[in-house]
Amino acid sequence: MKGSVLIVDDDLALAEMLGIVLRSEGLDVTHVANGSEAVGVFREVRPDLVLLDVMLPGMDGMEICRRIRAESGVPIVMLTARTDTVDVVVGLENGADDYVVKPFKSQELIARLRARLRRTDDPEPERLEVGDLVIDVAGHSVKRNGVRLGLTPLEFDLLVALARKPRQVFSRELLLEQVWGYRHAGDTRLVNVHVQRLRSKIERDPEHPEIVVTVRGVGYKAGPS
């Protein structure tokens, strides 16, 4: 696995341990312990992925997440000790792509990071059409009438996963596995939140979606119902 990861965590022991594990996977690791320095370091390093602890001194993890997302589509994975509904949803709404709940297993973390970093591998040239959108998989672009829509890599992956098999209904669990790299059952709210975000960018009327359609009781599918 290639790529660089920025770890933002005030717990030095955990950060060091993360560094050891990630380096052993072949990743470049940069560490910043103070929240207020995190955005500056991010601009300097330009990592391929940010691993962000929610509880930080200096600046709140949520705030850092929002600021980084404002200027970059870089994958952000949050580390959280809380599984309380509100915290997780707030984090996801602030732009995090995924979250890992402490304590986690190294294998689980690496699987998730791998899913987020997968796009850096060279994909086959592929062109997909769904509704009035044209997706260039290799070029990581989505266009409507020639106008490029700005999606984060995760949103792009989600759209591509759905668009590759139009009219097939994807359960939330299947999407978690394919897009987020979950190996066991995960939090399906992750899918809901990101589908909402994706819709707000690609649908003409997000209240009445036509591209990513909900199939009640089952999941989602691409294309008209």
């Binding site: 993360l18 594990v21 402490k102 304590p103 297993k105 190294s106």
Partner: peptide
């Protein structure tokens, strides 16, 4: 429970390794 989680994560990862 929360405070235990961070050190437990480190121990967990170290133990995995």
């Amino acid at each position: 429970s929360h405070e235990l989680r961070t050190p437990l994560t480190t121990i967990r990862m170290a133990a995995d390794l």
